[in-house]
Design a protein around this nucleic acid. Structure first.
Length: 268
DNA sequence: CGAGCATGGTGAC
DNA sequence: TCACCCTGCTCGA
């Protein structure tokens, strides 16, 4: 689940449900119990997201920093019994937010939060982000564009699905060195990520087939991916490319699965 | 029912 | 580059 759009959506939902209120805070699992006790009964100001990092601001300069990692998730819904390992629960009389399996959930302060954000590259979901920072950065990088897209210090919030999909949509060979791509191409990558991730946040799922160019325009019907969104290449190994019919390929790159169409995106 | 895997990141070598 | 962490789902026995 968790690429940047999930965290931004979550931040909005948390602010909406708990902003300005004093939710009950607990850690049924116990691993955040001391911190939960400290925060319980204090006012939650607002939640925000930068890249894949989620920050929940409370009064008295207290900030909860959450990173979902690969398997973490936060479920917001009607209050019910605690099910499974819940690291953190925020609850009013009617709504509960349950955090499970996060890579990190820590109590920190605004300075530390700012320091973490300072290490991240521009976030396509941040309206104030400056893509020129990205363009300057990638000019000096020889690593493959596919590797660079997942580097949160270069670009914040992109995960494995958006990486595969944006490279397909722009017809780029994933192994092209980042610095070998013209600035215009990087600008186009940025612009497409802004579009796709905003759509992802709005819909609550990743759908890369419909937004910019319709499947009709590309001569093929849409396909619905098992994961709930419509995608061109992500996890479609050996299935025909929706544009040219060539079997989609998969390989390991720096420990992550990479998916691409060898015809639409050049050799290799 | 157990193994393997997943949209991520860290820390040791 | 690798082992490892965390949860929950799917797949094959």
């Amino acid at each position: 689940m968790p690429e940047g759009h999930v965290l931004h959506r979550l931040a909005d939902e948390l602010t909406c449900a708990f902003g300005g209120r004093r939710p009950r805070i607990s850690s049924p699992q116990g691993r955040f119990a001391a911190e939960a006790l400290l925060l319980d009964g204090t006012t939650l100001r607002q939640a925000s997201a930068v890249g894949k990092h989620l920050f929940i601001d409370f009064e008295d300069e207290r900030v909860v920093h959450i990173h979902l990692g690969l398997i973490g998730r936060m479920a917001i819904g009607p209050v019910g019994p605690v099910v499974g390992q819940v690291r953190l629960r925020l609850a009013t009389d009617t709504i509960a937010a349950d955090l499970r399996g996060p890579q990190g959930c820590r109590l920190t302060d605004p300075d530390h939060a700012a320091a973490m954000v300072a290490r991240l590259g521009p976030d396509p979901l941040d309206p104030a982000a400056d893509p020129d920072i990205l363009l300057d950065h990638v000019r000096r990088l020889r690593r493959p564009v596919a590797t660079v897209l997942l580097d949160q210090g270069v670009l914040a919030g992109v995960g494995n699905v958006y990486r595969a999909e944006v490279l397909f949509r722009l017809g780029l060979d994933p192994l092209t060195p980042a610095a070998a791509l013209p600035a215009d191409t990087w600008r186009a990558l940025w612009d497409d990520l802004v579009l796709l991730m905003a759509e992802g946040k709005r819909l609550g799922r990743i759908d890369t087939v419909r937004p910019a160019h319709t499947p009709e325009a590309m001569g093929r019907p849409p396909r619905v991916d098992d994961h709930g969104g419509e995608v061109y290449v992500y996890r479609r190994t050996d299935q025909p490319c929706l544009v040219c019919g060539t079997p989609i390929r998969r390989r390991d790159l720096a420990g992550r699965n990479l998916y691409w169409c060898p015809t639409c995106q050049g050799g290799r």
